[in-house]
Design a protein around this nucleic acid. Structure first.
Lengths: 200, 200
DNA sequence: CGCATAATTGAACAATGTTCAATATGTGCT
DNA sequence: AGCACATATTGAACATTGTTCAATTATGCG
């Protein structure tokens, strides 16, 4: 038995999240179980429930970390100065590449379905908004006469669209294969959308 | 006990699919269990396994029926003569309305994750291609100089995009609410995309 | 009427999330 | 040093899941 005070609550918390990430990466959401996570960090199920409210809680926190990683990669790309169109294409490529390299964890964000009454935790919502903000910033120079509301709307539309392509392709519900064709599809959506969106 | 020959295999098969649809509509995929379906049609678990290979098989068949319904509604809309842009907007509205009115069953198509090695049954693939065909047909008049490949690519890109909007909105991963805003978002995507896609 | 055939059952198994009394362990006090 | 208290950790228990298959029961035929 793990001896008392071998690890603080915080340490156990972190260890569990990392273990869960490893399991989810290899076996997907359906392969993730409380007992597996517990045994991987050298504790038993009970301990997990001292640190997380339940499995949903743990999954939500793993997803939050994944989203955070994705955001950081996008921010890094977005920081390099580029023409607006190139910036959006680069963001889209980064998104797709992340989803492609971390398919299991990325899918988990969307596979995990919330209870009917459940409201997303604030940090999670903020992550999403931060991501949209990157797209909005890149979009703004292309629509100088457009209102903030229109820019926000466009960013959401375009990004949800890219997300949809990514999702259908990587979950193999679409009859396409390979990361290149995903990129191509996303480029098609982006280029045509920007052509229509751009003013002049 | 249900008496022998009360129902043929085919009847049991159909009853099970309908029962599963009802359960899924009310409780979602996670509320669907073999025992629930069985008891709802007055049989026991064992019987279900004479008619379906396993639960995944049953779910896949339910999804196939859902997709078929969706396709029929879209085809009905697509049959009425309209200008290309109006046609695509109408198709998108139909899609969103169906997803909105049958959220649980529609989500189930995408929530149900396939094994790594699993290949989608041919009928399922055909359904998807049929749906894309409707979009392609509406798109063709707008891109008279474009190749079939380009049209197909555009249809997939746009439609996956609309799907993405629908999915993020209805699963509440986006910070928007209500069917109207979903329609608005989808319209934004469509209108800008078509503006960019259209030739002249 | 009885027997063979086949339809239907439901007990059994392994695995799941979750709880909580019981136990092991470290800390502090005398 | 030893003892007692507090608490970290456990793991057995429960309900539920998918899936299998020997046992049972109803039916139609001879």
């Amino acid at each position: 038995m793990a001896r008392r005070s071998d690890h603080t609550r915080e340490e156990i918390h972190l260890m569990a999240l990392e273990a869960a990430e490893a399991i989810a990466s290899q076996e997907g959401l359906s392969g993730l179980s409380a007992r597996k996570v517990a045994s991987k960090i050298g504790y038993t199920v009970g301990t997990l429930y001292l640190v997380f409210r339940n499995l949903d809680d743990l999954i939500l926190q793993v997803n939050d970390r994944t989203l955070s990683q994705l955001y950081q990669e996008m921010e890094r790309v977005s920081a390099k100065p580029k023409k607006p169109e190139a910036c959006i294409l680069a963001l889209s490529h980064t998104y797709i590449e992340f989803a492609s390299n971390n398919t299991a964890r990325w899918s988990m964000i969307y596979e995990h379905v919330l209870e009917d009454d459940f409201v997303l935790p604030a940090p999670f919502q903020q992550q999403v908004q931060q991501m949209f903000a990157l797209v909005e910033n890149a979009l703004r120079p292309l629509g100088k006469n457009k209102s903030d509301r229109e820019i926000a709307q466009a960013a959401r539309a375009l990004w949800s669209g890219i997300h949809g392509i990514c999702l259908l392709a990587l979950t193999r519900k679409l009859d396409i294969a390979g990361i290149d064709s995903v990129q191509d599809l996303a480029d098609t959506l982006t280029v045509n959308f920007l052509n229509g969106f751009r003013e002049n």
